[in-house]
Design a protein around this nucleic acid. Structure first.
Length: 596
RNA sequence: GGCCUCGUAGUUCAAUGGAUAGAAUAGAAGUUUCCUAAACUUUAGAUAUGGGUUCGAUUCCCGUCGAGGCUACCA
C-alpha cells in the first residue's frame, strides 16, 4: 500500500467517525502540495462541504486533528482556505527510501502476461530518413521500452514500404541517367543514392510537364503524359508481373537502401524484432473483402466496387476494393493486421504513425471492430504531431528537409567541440572520447524530440536543439556523471554506503526529503507513460529529478559531513538517483556517461 | 465548404476542474579554498478573444479570430 492510499483510508475513517458518512475510495484523491505551503499531500475540501456541515477551515481542521492523532503517516497539518495540507512522518520517508534502495531492479513491473506489438519506423525505400522519421523512431523505440517496463512482452515491428510508384520513380531516373552508379563507385550511402534519383526524377518530370504545357497541353493532361511518368507506371506494371529486369533493378536498389538504413538505425539505437515488407503484403486483404461482404459489413455498388458504410460511427462511406478488383491501402492494412495477429497473437497493437493519418486509422480500426476481430479492442494509433522548422513545414521539393544522418552527425560534432572546450575529460582514450560524443549528441537529440507530448506538433529549432543547458538530455546526463564521480570517491575512501540502516537517520533536510518523494514517484510515472503512450512523462520526470538532485548537491555536503550515517545516507541517496536516471533514460533510449 | 487538432512569458515546452498558472531559454544581478559551474541562487515577464456551466475553468460547452492537418477508385 502506498502512503497516499494509506492516508486516503484514514480520511475515510475520519469521515465515518467525525461526520458519520461513508465515502467510497473513488471519490477521494490527494494531490501534491504546492511548493509555497508546508506539507506533501493536499486534500481538497470543497467537494465535501455538504457532508462536513461547516466551513472548509473548520472541517479541515477537524479532519487534520483526527489524522494527526490516528494516522501513522501524518505528522502534522495546516489548513489554508479549502485545502488541507498534510505533512508525512519523516520515518516513513526513510522507510520508503530503504525499500527502494534494497530493490534489485527499479522501474520494472512483473510480467502482466500480455503481448503488445509496436509498429514504428516504416520507411519508404525511395529516399533517406529525415527529421520526422527521427521523432517516429525515437518514439517507437521508447514506447516499446516503456511498455516492457510495464510488464508487457513487446514485439517491435517495422513495415517497410518497399514497393509502389514512388520506388519506380527512383528506378526510372536511375535507369536513364545513373550510368551504373553504385554506393561503392560514388561513395554515397545507399539510401542517399536512391534519394538522389528520386529527386532527379522529380526535376525531370517537372521539366517535361512544363514543356508539354508550353506545347499547349493542359496541366492535368501534361502530368499524365509526361514520358517519365508513363515509364514509372509501366515499370510498376512490369514489377507486378514479375518482369526479371525490373525486379532485378528493384532488388539491387532496395539492397543498397537497406544497407544505408541499417547504418542509420544503428546510430539511432533502434531495433526491430520483425520486418514486414509491403511487397509481400500488398495483395493481402482481398479475402477479407469477401468475408465482409458475406457478413454484410461491406456492400457492392453497381460498378463492382466494394464499400463500407461508417456513417453510424460518425464517418463516411469508404472504398475497400476498386471496381477493377484491385485493392487500396486500407484493404492491405486489414490484411496485414490479420497477418500480424496470426504471427504473434498479441493483446495490443500500437501503430506509431503521424497524425496526418488520423482519419485512416479511425476508419481502419472501426472496420476491424465491425469484422469482430479478437484484437479489435487492443488497437491504438500513437498519433504524433509533425515536426516543424522555424521556416515552416519541411518540404522536400524546396530543399528544406533536415536529413537524419546529417542532423545526428551535427549533434555529435557539436557535443565533441563543446566537450573539448570544457576540457574535463583528460585521460580519455580516443575511443572513449568518441563514444562520449556519441552518447551526448544522441542524448541531446533524443531528449529534445521526446520531451514534448507526442500528440502535439513541435518546433525544431536547430540552434536550440543543440544546446546542452537547461531542460536537455546532457543536463540529465551531467547529473548522472556527477553522481558517478561521488561514488568513485566514496569507494576510494571507503565509505560503506551499501549496508547501513537508513531508517535510523535522525533528521531529514528538506532537499533530502524532496528527493525521496521524487524517487518514490518513478514507478507511478512509468505506469502513466505506458497508459498514455507518452515518453514525455518520463522525460519530464527525469528533468525534475535532476533539478532536485542538483539543488541537493549544491546545498548539502557529503564528504565534509561529520555524522557518519548521514554521510553514508547522502551517498546512498545519490546512488539511488543515479540508478533512477540511468533506468529512466534507458526507457527513452538514451545512454548516460560516468564522466563528461 | 465539411471534418479533426491546436492557440499559455520575447522564444520553446508544463499544468487528473482546484490555492498566487510551473520550467527552460533569452534579459538583469549574484555564487568556485568545498564532492564535475554542462551546475546553483535571486529577479522580471503569459492563459488569442467574447459568452456559458461550476463553490472554483488554461482545462468542459458555444461563438469569433488565427495556425496546421484530413477531405483520392494515392500510399
Amino acid at each position: 500500500m502506498t502512503i497516499q492510499e494509506q492516508i486516503l483510508l484514514d480520511i475515510q475513517k475520519a469521515f465515518k467517525v467525525l461526520f458519520d458518512h461513508e465515502l467510497s475510495q473513488v471519490d477521494l484523491a490527494l494531490q501534491p502540495t504546492r511548493k509555497d505551503f508546508a506539507g506533501t499531500y493536499t486534500f481538497v475540501l470543497f467537494p465535501y462541504l455538504k457532508i462536513i456541515k461547516s466551513g472548509p477551515e473548520e472541517g479541515g481542521r477537524k479532519i487534520g486533528e483526527y489524522l494527526k492523532e490516528h494516522s501513522t503517516a501524518v505528522r502534522d497539518f495546516n489548513v489554508v482556505k479549502g485545502f488541507l495540507n498534510l505533512e508525512v512522518n519523516e520515518s516513513l520517508w526513510l522507510q520508503i527510501f530503504q525499500n527502494l534502495y534494497n530493490k534489485e531492479h527499479i522501474g520494472q513491473f512483473p510480467s502482466n502476461g500480455q503481448k503488445v506489438m509496436v509498429e514504428y519506423s516504416s520507411p519508404n525505400t525511395n529516399k533517406p530518413l529525415h527529421l520526422g522519421h527521427l521523432r517516429n523512431n525515437f518514439l517507437g523505440f521508447s514506447i516499446s521500452e516503456i511498455l516492457a517496463a510495464n510488464g508487457y512482452e513487446v514485439i517491435k515491428a517495422n513495415l517497410v514500404n518497399d514497393r509502389g510508384i514512388h520506388i519506380c520513380k527512383s528506378m526510372v531516373a536511375y535507369q536513364r541517367i545513373a550510368n551504373g552508379e553504385t554506393p561503392d563507385s560514388s561513395g554515397l550511402k545507399g539510401d542517399h543514392l536512391a534519394g538522389k534519383y528520386y529527386v532527379a526524377f522529380d526535376r525531370e518530370y517537372k521539366k517535361q510537364v512544363a514543356e508539354l504545357m508550353a506545347d499547349g497541353q493542359t496541366e492535368a493532361r501534361a502530368k499524365q503524359m509526361a514520358p517519365w511518368m508513363l515509364a514509372a507506371q509501366d515499370m510498376l506494371r512490369k514489377w507486378e508481373t514479375g518482369d526479371k529486369e525490373v525486379v532485378d533493378l528493384w532488388t539491387r536498389m532496395n539492397q543498397w537502401v537497406y544497407q544505408g538504413f541499417n547504418e542509420t538505425y544503428k546510430r539511432m539505437g533502434v531495433l526491430f524484432d520483425k520486418f514486414y515488407y509491403e511487397s509481400e503484403t500488398y495483395l493481402l486483404g482481398k479475402n477479407i473483402v469477401e468475408e465482409g461482404l458475406e457478413k454484410g459489413v461491406f456492400y457492392k455498388k453497381d460498378d463492382g466496387s466494394v464499400w463500407v458504410d461508417l456513417s453510424e460511427e460518425g464517418l463516411d462511406e469508404k472504398l475497400v476494393l476498386r471496381a477493377d478488383g484491385t485493392s487500396v491501402y486500407i484493404t492491405q492494412d486489414l490484411g496485414t493486421a490479420d497477418l500480424k495477429y496470426r504471427d504473434f497473437g498479441f493483446d495490443k497493437s500500437v501503430y506509431v504513425v503521424g497524425n496526418e493519418q488520423d482519419y485512416h486509422f479511425d476508419v481502419l480500426f472501426k472496420i476491424i471492430k465491425k469484422l469482430e476481430r479478437p484484437f479489435g479492442e487492443g488497437l491504438h494509433h500513437l498519433s504524433y504531431g509533425m515536426v516543424d522548422l522555424p521556416t515552416g513545414k519541411m518540404k522536400s521539393r524546396e530543399g528544406t528537409v533536415v536529413d537524419a544522418d546529417d542532423l545526428m552527425q551535427e549533434m555529435i560534432d557539436t557535443a565533441a567541440s563543446h566537450t573539448k572546450e570544457l576540457g574535463k575529460i583528460d585521460g580519455f582514450s580516443d575511443e572513449q572520447a568518441t563514444e562520449l560524443y556519441e552518447t551526448l549528441g544522441m542524448g541531446a537529440l533524443k531528449y529534445f524530440l521526446l520531451k514534448v507530448d507526442p500528440k502535439k506538433r513541435m518546433l525544431f529549432n536547430p540552434q536550440e536543439s543543440i544546446e546542452f543547458q537547461g531542460n536537455t538530455g546532457p543536463f540529465i546526463q551531467y547529473s548522472h556523471a556527477r553522481i558517478a564521480s561521488i561514488i568513485r570517491k566514496a569507494d576510494q575512501i571507503g565509505v560503506d554506503y551499501k549496508n547501513a540502516d537508513y531508517t535510523k537517520v535522525d533528521k531529514l533536510e528538506i532537499a533530502e526529503q524532496e528527493l525521496i518523494i521524487v524517487l518514490n514517484d518513478f514507478e507511478k510515472k512509468i505506469k502513466t507513460a505506458g497508459e498514455e503512450l507518452s515518453p514525455s512523462v518520463i522525460a519530464q520526470y527525469l528533468f525534475d529529478l535532476s533539478k532536485e538532485y542538483n539543488r541537493f548537491y549544491a546545498e548539502l555536503p557529503i564528504f565534509n559531513e561529520d555524522n557518519l550515517l548521514v554521510q553514508q545516507f547522502r551517498v546512498a541517496l545519490s546512488l539511488q538517483v543515479a540508478k533512477t536516471i540511468k533506468r529512466g533514460m534507458a526507457l527513452l533510449g538514451v545512454k548516460v556517461p560516468d564522466r563528461m
